[in-house]
Nucleic acid binder design. Structure first.
Length: 267
DNA sequence: AAACGCCACAACCGCTTCTTG
DNA sequence: CCAAGAAGCGGTTGTGGCGTT
């Protein structure tokens, strides 16, 4: 094994680590190569490396009888199939996706899995203090309108925000019980007579009046500087609707192949 | 080691709203 | 305008991991 480094100490450390890892890498790569008749490799947006064969999909169909719907947590196999589908057909038409892929899931479940977990725009990990602050401010203004709140926090879904509020923030603020939309803690509920109103449509992500927009703007601007810090210190958030794992596959494949070539030569 | 309880989060459910033909 | 299907929303439940006894 050869390393290029300007520091002897690094060189010796790398050599030491490599000597420990090499036997393990050899074993794993041997197993992989002997079992995968048709390799497909990609990294999802949680930085998991997936290597799977064409036979792999069959595993995802297990667990449900004829016509029976699967419930509960999604498996890696199901995730991959759904990601494959979205890659080719784009998101939307989720009922069709369920039928097309053969997944034993209904359209709603597919949509939810994509929107809340698989979508590359979903940010994982703990909420920052800045995000907490923004949620609290927005909740004060909007109440339990989670999709509206989430729409103003980059990378966070309504489900994430809702869970985070119910588990952490409501306790932190000493809120007893769970909020209802009509809860008196919301600014909207406090001022029903105010000269702005919010549409009854729970789907409506727009803010109907100038005053409401202005209030939201104030909240957002209040967190503007902090938000700047967040975006400058955290990993970039992908803004495209779909993060194509296959774009990354060639380099990974090259890397894998190079590694394997090296290993075979080394034997 | 096993049983239990708690917590965090993913997923489901029922309903409303939107879109399309 | 209407009906049917799709999409979106928020409340609630289920599941798995982890710590404690």
């Amino acid at each position: 094994m050869n390393f290029v480094t300007s520091h002897d100490s690094e060189f010796h450390l790398l050599q030491k680590v490599a000597s420990k890892l090499l036997p393990l890498i050899r074993r794993v790569s041997k197993i992989l190569c002997s079992n995968l008749s048709s390799r497909r490799v990609f990294v999802n947006n949680h930085n998991y490396l997936y290597i799977y064969s064409n036979h792999f999909a069959a595993t995802a169909m297990k667990g449900a009888g004829n016509g029976e719907q699967r419930k509960g947590l999604w498996t890696v196999e199901e995730d991959i199939i759904l990601m494959d589908y979205v890659k080719v057909h784009g998101k939307g038409k989720w009922n069709r996706a369920a039928k097309f892929t053969g997944l034993k899931r209904d359209g709603k479940s597919c949509r939810l899995r994509w929107m809340n977990y698989l979508s590359p725009s979903v940010k994982r990990g703990a909420f920052s203090e800045e995000e907490d602050d923004l949620i609290i401010r927005l909740h004060k203004l909007l109440g339990n309108r989670w999709s509206l709140i989430a729409g103003r926090i980059p990378g966070r879904t309504d489900n994430q925000v809702k869970n985070h509020w119910n588990i952490h923030l409501s306790k932190k603020l000493g809120v007893k019980g769970k909020y209802k939309v009509s809860d008196s803690s919301s600014e909207f509920s406090k001022k029903p007579e105010a000269d702005f109103s919010i549409k009854s449509s729970s789907n409506d992500r727009s803010i109907p009046s100038n005053k409401t927009e202005a209030e939201l703007q104030n909240v957002l601007e209040g967190s503007h500087e902090k938000a700047k810090e967040i975006t400058s210190t955290q990993e970039p958030i992908l803004t495209s609707d779909f993060y194509d794992p296959y774009l990354y596959a060639p380099s990974l494949m090259e890397l894998l192949d190079e590694s394997l070539d090296f290993l075979w030569h080394d034997f």
